[in-house]
């Protein structure tokens, strides 16, 4: 990183973004592992509780055994991989985009719209914007302002590619 360059991040900016990346990674990793460790976990109940404009699509996922198995697998190992990748800063660009996509799906299946209620009450109060949406937008920021090539294993790849 060239300190004087306008396009580059200042060290505090970079560190703040890396902090965001690591914390979001931690969240993904734990959400993934907790599902992996529970042999009875399935996304089915969550999907069946879907509301909003895409409800029927999520219900189709829940009621289709083959699709559900894939959804479950991706929810377990997908979250683990995204989390690990964000923390380590390895293939972070793919991970941030995949993470944003996953969160967008979570959001769309349970959008906090006016008059819409869910079986499981949310842990906060939301109107249209909820934590999934905020976390998703952060991942988009991280995808656009990559940090892993400065701090993270991507730095090694980045360097060797430039050889």
């Amino acid at each position: 990183m060239t300190k004087s360059s306008d396009k580059s991040l200042k060290t505090p900016q970079l560190l703040a973004l890396v902090l965001c990346r690591v914390l979001i990674g931690w969240h993904f990793l734990y959400e993934g592992f907790i599902k992996v460790l529970n042999p009875e976990w399935s996304a089915k109940i969550f999907l069946l509780d879907s509301q909003g404009p895409f409800k029927s699509w999520f219900l189709w996922m829940a009621n289709n055994e083959g699709v559900l198995q894939t959804v479950d697998f991706l929810n377990q190992w997908g979250l683990v991989l995204i989390g690990a990748s964000l923390i380590l800063g390895l293939f972070s660009r793919v991970a941030t985009l995949a993470g944003a996509l996953v969160l967008a799906l979570f959001y769309l299946s349970h959008p906090p719209l006016i008059g819409v209620e869910y079986m499981l009450p949310s842990e906060g109060s939301y109107l249209i914007v909820n934590k999934n949406l905020i976390e998703m937008s952060f991942l988009i920021v991280l995808a656009l302002i990559p940090t892993s090539q400065y701090i993270g294993l991507d730095r090694l790849i980045f360097r060797s590619r430039r050889k």
């Binding site: 931690w26 380590l88 400065y150 294993l153 730095r155």
Partner: peptide
């Protein structure tokens, strides 16, 4: 410096 910066976040996995 490269090596340190590349591996800076690895200990977090350990903490996790």
């Amino acid at each position: 410096r490269d090596v340190l910066k590349s591996l800076a976040t690895v200990p977090i996995i350990g903490a996790f």
